[in-house]
Computed example of a mutant assay.
Amino acid sequence: MRSMTGYGRINKNIGDYGYNLEIKSLNSKSLNLNVIISPIFSPLEINIQNFIKKHFQRGRINIYIDIKLLKSDDVIDIDLGLAKAYYNALNVLANELHLSGEVNLEILLKFKDILKVSLTDEKIAQIWCGLEKVLEEATNIVINFQEEEGKNLEKVIVEYLKEMKRIVDEISQHADKMKDTYRELINNNLNSLLTDFTNIDEKRMEMEITLLSERSDITEEIDRLNSHIKRFKNLLESSEPSIGQDLDFICQEMHREFNTIASKSKLLEITNLSLEGRSLVNKIREQVQNVH
């Protein structure tokens, strides 16, 4: 099991390029990628996103990438035609407005579109070859971080599950008693209402009592809770790369079962246990929010 919290950083030179890469992962209900990279290397963004999606299914993943050229390379295109056009236009402007000073290189360089960085497909492929290796290393660091955090989360959740199983078992022990209590309550209420009547169909009354008692039966809810706990444990022990959403769904279902038990309960013991169970589910869910 992995948490969604992780961090990894790599600074490495490969071939003619230097790579400085940092990955931070935080909690999120779904996968949310944020890639920060120079616009020069924007053609690599799709490759980066596809790579990350193979390793992360949940979390807010922030990726910072800085790529440097380690040696001089012919990647700058100069738009001489545009530079001359700017130069001529500025001279005309200076003459018309009777401005002093000359149009020099410093002024021309303020027009960013004169100098353009141009990377060929071949260079992009070379840069990606090195970047992919660095991404792999940084991703492994993050995943190892998440797995260590996941171990701590699992210990806490397992203890909560043990406590929940105890609660469910105690509710089960009180379940048969609740049927008898419900029957006794109905009998007492009916007797107080029917004291002035002599002709009472006892069989019909018994049938009504049985029907009402069946409505208070919580056997199915107990069975489902036990099933949810078992499923939860199986997911914790599985090798699935992402189980957080499934665990969260099971928490919702367990909370619903405890609510149903509380609404049916006529015993204070069961009501209190169901409330304790709901509180425990909330604690588990707080931990599950950080499970990848």
Rank of each mutant, 00 (worst) to 15 (best):
M1R: 06
T5H: 00
G6I: 09
G8Y: 05
G8K: 03
I10K: 15
K12G: 02
N13K: 14
Y19K: 03
L21Q: 05
E22M: 03
L31P: 02
L33S: 03
N34V: 08
V35M: 14
I37M: 06
S38E: 14
P39V: 10
F41H: 03
S42C: 03
E45C: 04
E45I: 15
I48V: 15
N50A: 03
N50G: 02
I52G: 00
K54V: 15
Q57Y: 14
Q57C: 02
R58K: 05
G59P: 07
I63G: 04
I63M: 07
I63W: 06
Y64H: 07
D66R: 13
K71M: 06
K71I: 04
D73V: 12
D74C: 01
I76P: 04
I76A: 12
D77F: 12
I78A: 04
D79V: 13
G81R: 11
A83P: 00
K84N: 13
N88S: 13
A89S: 15
A89L: 14
V92G: 01
N95T: 14
N95P: 05
E96I: 08
L99F: 13
L108R: 03
L108H: 00
K110E: 10
K110R: 11
V117P: 06
S118P: 07
L119N: 02
T120G: 09
D121R: 15
E122A: 12
I124Y: 12
Q126E: 15
C129D: 15
C129Y: 14
E132A: 14
E132F: 14
E136Y: 13
N140T: 04
N140P: 05
G150M: 08
L153E: 01
E154Q: 09
E154K: 14
K155Q: 07
Y160K: 10
K162S: 09
M164A: 04
K165H: 06
V168T: 08
A175V: 13
M178V: 09
M178L: 11
M178N: 00
K179Q: 10
D180W: 01
R183Q: 12
E184L: 14
I186Y: 10
N187Q: 10
N188M: 03
D196V: 04
F197D: 03
N199M: 07
E202D: 06
K203A: 08
M205A: 00
E208H: 00
L212I: 15
R215W: 07
S216Y: 05
D217L: 03
E220P: 00
R224M: 10
L225S: 07
K230R: 13
L236W: 03
E237T: 03
S238W: 01
E240W: 05
P241A: 05
D246Q: 08
L247A: 00
L247N: 01
L247E: 06
D248Q: 10
C251P: 02
C251F: 07
Q252E: 07
N259H: 13
N259Y: 10
K266Q: 08
K266N: 12
L268K: 06
L268W: 04
T271F: 00
N272F: 05
L273V: 02
S274P: 06
L275V: 15
V281C: 11
K283Y: 05
K283C: 01
I284S: 08
V288G: 00
